[in-house]
Amino acid sequence: ASVAVIAAGTQGNIFATSALRSMRFLQILRMVRMDRRGGTWKLLGSVVYAHSKELITAWYIGFLVLIFASFLVYLAEKDANSDFSSYADSLWWGTITLTTIGYGDKTPHTWLGRVLAAGFALLGISFFALPAGILGSGFALKVQEQHRQKHFEKRRMPAANLIQAAWRLYSTDMSRAYLTATWYYYDSILPSFRELALLFEHVQRARNGGLRPLEVRRAPVPDGAPSRYPPVATCHRPGSTSFCPGESSRMGIKDRIRMGSSQRRTGPSKQHLAPPTMPTSPSSEQVGEATSPTKVQKSWSFNDRTRFRASLRLKPRTSAEDAPSEEVAEEKSYQCELTVDDIMPAVKTVIRSIRILKFLVAKRKFKETLRPYDVKDVIEQYSAGHLDMLGRIKSLQTRVDQIVGRGPGDRKAREKGDKGPSDAEVVDEISMMGRVVKVEKQVQSIEHKLDLLLGFYSRCLRSGTSASLGAVQVPLFDPDITSDYHSPVDHEDISVSAQTLSISRSVSTNMD
């Protein structure tokens, strides 16, 4: 405001104040949320940038038409019409005319000016109207692209899951042992070998009828009888010197917790746990005396209480009078009846079946994303299906024409109403129809010849004498029936064969 007042002088105070007050009108834009329509302006900018070359070309040609039209109309009207006294007036008329506004304040009066105005109007309006069409088509394409992008975003994750499931299904095939990355992934998420051994031990116990592997080994086996189970490696608790092959000598807290839970599941009659010990102070733990958990001091820290809870689970003690015997301790020893080589084939089979199920689920979810969402998608899918159906029908028609023997030239002739090819031409065609016709002709010829021969033979049998045999009239074959199959017997006289037959029969009768 200060700059405006200084620039306008003393009389500019009122002007500056009114100008600043008129800017209050811009507050109405906040009512229509114009300040939060950044996406709309961004869309407009992207459309203009995408079609910038077309817009520049249309505007450039339109500007050239405007300059030439205004100049030529000015030359034609400057002497006869006072409205075109300057080139600026003519340029104003050209702008209003070519933009199809047409105020009518300035019009050419001479015939030359009117002809020039009409010609440049028809030429220039087309170029001035091009930017509107370019922007409209650009907006339509952009909206369609955003629509497809939205659908693509919805299909991206199911497609990625389907590709991942397909690759993992491919890589978990037993015949592709060189693909090891997927197996490394499952090695990292699978439970430890100790848990798998416990699982298979329970399965084997159920197969043995509820007997433990130790009891199965204690059962008497006759001499020479084959053992029911192959000899396997035996594993004891981590306190002993022997372990399962492939295990580490260090046992983690999870393994100890699972070991304690498995020992508690063996039965309360074979294992008696004394009350857990509780320390009397955060600094020292008295293991010899058993106290109640309700006497825990409230001033303990979080670490002390955590250690106390761990001691409740991981440090059970047995009383002296209830101490288990050596046999019970041997039964409680952890027996590992299986090795990694025995378990891994079954584990890989389970993983393979899981990968198949996940692949089928991913495939079903991806197919669900291909379903249409709204009416536009339904129409688009219907149009695509219609085009596909037309293509299939056209391909089927082409194959039928190839089989029947109607080529493209014959199809055009039928469409024009011309006469089709004759039967002889159809026979000569190298097509399925021509071959079928040729075979039918040959079969008819053979059938006719057989009928003639059978009739001749029956007449010979009825006559009974050589004289009557020679008097029999043998009809000749019709050459038209034989089609294109020409037998060497067709052109010979059958009477010669009949005479030869009669001579042979007379000779045979004389010999008798």
Rank of each mutant, 00 (worst) to 15 (best):
165 A>S: 11
165 A>G: 06
165 A>P: 00
167 W>R: 01
170 Y>C: 08
170 Y>N: 11
171 S>P: 01
171 S>C: 09
172 T>A: 12
173 D>E: 13
174 M>R: 09
175 S>I: 08
175 S>N: 08
175 S>R: 09
176 R>P: 14
179 L>R: 11
180 T>A: 07
180 T>S: 10
180 T>R: 10
181 A>V: 00
182 T>S: 06
182 T>N: 08
182 T>I: 02
183 W>C: 07
184 Y>H: 01
187 D>N: 12
187 D>E: 11
188 S>G: 11
188 S>T: 11
188 S>N: 06
189 I>L: 10
190 L>F: 11
190 L>V: 10
191 P>L: 12
191 P>A: 08
192 S>P: 07
192 S>T: 07
192 S>F: 10
193 F>Y: 11
196 L>M: 06
197 A>V: 10
197 A>T: 07
198 L>F: 10
198 L>I: 11
198 L>V: 05
198 L>R: 01
199 L>F: 12
199 L>V: 09
200 F>Y: 13
200 F>V: 07
201 E>D: 10
202 H>Y: 09
202 H>R: 01
203 V>G: 11
203 V>E: 10
204 Q>E: 11
204 Q>L: 14
206 A>T: 08
207 R>L: 03
208 N>K: 14
208 N>I: 09
208 N>S: 07
212 R>Q: 13
213 P>A: 12
214 L>P: 14
216 V>G: 07
216 V>M: 01
218 R>Q: 13
219 A>T: 10
220 P>S: 10
221 V>E: 07
221 V>A: 12
222 P>A: 14
223 D>V: 12
223 D>G: 07
224 G>R: 09
225 A>S: 11
225 A>P: 07
225 A>E: 11
227 S>F: 11
227 S>A: 14
228 R>G: 08
228 R>C: 08
228 R>P: 04
229 Y>F: 11
230 P>L: 08
232 V>D: 10
234 T>S: 12
235 C>F: 13
236 H>Y: 13
239 G>R: 00
239 G>V: 10
240 S>G: 06
242 S>F: 10
243 F>L: 07
243 F>C: 14
243 F>Y: 09
245 P>H: 09
245 P>R: 06
245 P>S: 07
247 E>A: 13
248 S>T: 04
250 R>Q: 05
251 M>T: 12
252 G>S: 12
252 G>A: 05
255 D>A: 07
255 D>E: 14
255 D>Y: 14
255 D>H: 03
256 R>C: 04
257 I>L: 08
258 R>C: 03
259 M>L: 06
259 M>I: 07
259 M>R: 00
259 M>V: 04
260 G>S: 14
261 S>N: 04
261 S>I: 14
261 S>C: 10
262 S>C: 15
262 S>A: 09
263 Q>L: 02
265 R>W: 05
267 G>C: 13
270 K>R: 09
270 K>T: 14
270 K>M: 12
271 Q>P: 14
271 Q>H: 09
272 H>L: 14
275 P>A: 04
275 P>S: 15
276 P>L: 14
277 T>A: 05
277 T>K: 08
278 M>V: 13
278 M>I: 14
279 P>L: 14
280 T>S: 04
280 T>N: 09
280 T>A: 00
281 S>A: 14
284 S>I: 09
285 E>A: 12
286 Q>L: 04
287 V>M: 06
288 G>A: 05
289 E>G: 05
289 E>A: 14
289 E>D: 14
289 E>K: 07
290 A>T: 15
291 T>S: 15
292 S>I: 15
292 S>G: 14
293 P>R: 07
294 T>I: 07
294 T>N: 15
294 T>P: 00
295 K>N: 15
295 K>E: 15
295 K>R: 06
295 K>M: 04
296 V>A: 15
297 Q>K: 13
302 F>S: 14
303 N>T: 11
303 N>Y: 15
303 N>H: 13
305 R>P: 15
305 R>G: 10
306 T>A: 15
308 F>I: 02
308 F>C: 11
308 F>Y: 08
310 A>E: 13
310 A>G: 09
311 S>C: 13
311 S>F: 13
311 S>T: 04
313 R>I: 05
313 R>G: 14
315 K>Q: 13
316 P>T: 10
316 P>L: 15
318 T>P: 03
319 S>A: 12
319 S>T: 06
319 S>P: 13
320 A>S: 15
322 D>Y: 15
322 D>E: 15
322 D>H: 09
324 P>H: 09
324 P>R: 07
324 P>T: 05
325 S>L: 09
327 E>A: 07
327 E>D: 06
328 V>A: 07
329 A>P: 05
331 E>A: 06
332 K>Q: 11
332 K>N: 04
333 S>C: 03
333 S>T: 05
333 S>G: 06
334 Y>D: 05
336 C>R: 07
337 E>K: 07
339 T>K: 09
339 T>M: 09
340 V>A: 10
342 D>Y: 05
343 I>T: 11
344 M>T: 13
345 P>R: 14
348 K>E: 10
348 K>R: 09
349 T>S: 14
350 V>L: 13
352 R>G: 05
352 R>L: 04
352 R>P: 02
353 S>P: 10
353 S>C: 10
354 I>M: 12
355 R>K: 09
355 R>T: 14
356 I>V: 06
356 I>M: 12
356 I>L: 12
358 K>Q: 08
359 F>Y: 07
360 L>V: 13
362 A>V: 13
364 R>W: 02
366 F>L: 13
367 K>M: 02
368 E>D: 02
369 T>I: 03
369 T>P: 02
370 L>R: 02
370 L>M: 13
370 L>P: 02
371 R>Q: 08
371 R>P: 02
372 P>A: 03
376 K>N: 10
376 K>M: 11
377 D>G: 12
377 D>V: 01
378 V>I: 09
380 E>K: 08
380 E>G: 05
381 Q>K: 14
382 Y>N: 15
382 Y>S: 15
384 A>T: 13
385 G>V: 13
385 G>S: 15
387 L>V: 10
388 D>G: 14
389 M>R: 02
390 L>Q: 03
390 L>M: 01
391 G>C: 12
391 G>R: 15
392 R>L: 02
393 I>N: 02
393 I>V: 10
393 I>T: 01
396 L>M: 12
396 L>P: 01
396 L>V: 11
398 T>A: 11
399 R>Q: 08
399 R>G: 02
399 R>P: 01
401 D>N: 14
401 D>E: 13
403 I>M: 08
403 I>L: 10
403 I>V: 14
404 V>M: 07
404 V>E: 05
404 V>L: 08
405 G>D: 02
406 R>L: 03
407 G>A: 14
408 P>T: 07
409 G>V: 14
410 D>Y: 15
410 D>A: 14
410 D>E: 05
411 R>M: 10
411 R>T: 06
412 K>E: 02
412 K>Q: 04
414 R>L: 11
415 E>K: 15
416 K>N: 02
418 D>E: 06
418 D>H: 15
421 P>A: 15
422 S>T: 09
424 A>T: 07
424 A>G: 11
425 E>A: 13
425 E>G: 12
426 V>M: 13
426 V>L: 11
427 V>G: 05
427 V>L: 06
428 D>E: 11
428 D>V: 11
429 E>D: 13
429 E>A: 13
429 E>G: 14
430 I>N: 10
431 S>N: 11
432 M>R: 09
432 M>V: 06
433 M>T: 06
434 G>V: 13
434 G>E: 06
435 R>L: 06
436 V>L: 11
436 V>A: 06
437 V>F: 13
438 K>M: 12
438 K>Q: 10
439 V>A: 14
441 K>R: 12
441 K>N: 10
444 Q>K: 06
445 S>F: 13
446 I>V: 12
446 I>T: 00
447 E>A: 13
447 E>V: 15
447 E>G: 13
448 H>L: 14
448 H>Y: 06
448 H>D: 14
450 L>P: 02
450 L>V: 11
450 L>R: 02
451 D>V: 07
452 L>Q: 15
452 L>R: 12
454 L>V: 10
456 F>I: 06
458 S>L: 14
459 R>H: 13
460 C>S: 13
461 L>V: 11
462 R>P: 05
462 R>G: 06
462 R>H: 09
463 S>A: 12
464 G>S: 05
466 S>T: 15
468 S>G: 00
469 L>R: 07
469 L>Q: 05
470 G>S: 04
471 A>T: 10
474 V>E: 04
476 L>P: 13
477 F>Y: 04
477 F>C: 03
477 F>S: 04
478 D>N: 13
478 D>G: 03
479 P>R: 04
480 D>Y: 08
483 S>C: 12
483 S>A: 13
484 D>H: 07
485 Y>N: 07
488 P>S: 13
488 P>T: 03
490 D>A: 14
490 D>Y: 04
491 H>P: 05
492 E>A: 14
492 E>K: 06
493 D>N: 10
497 S>T: 11
497 S>F: 05
499 Q>R: 07
499 Q>P: 12
500 T>R: 13
500 T>A: 12
500 T>K: 08
501 L>P: 12
502 S>T: 07
502 S>N: 06
502 S>R: 14
503 I>T: 06
504 S>P: 15
507 V>D: 13
509 T>I: 06
511 M>I: 14
511 M>T: 08
512 D>N: 05
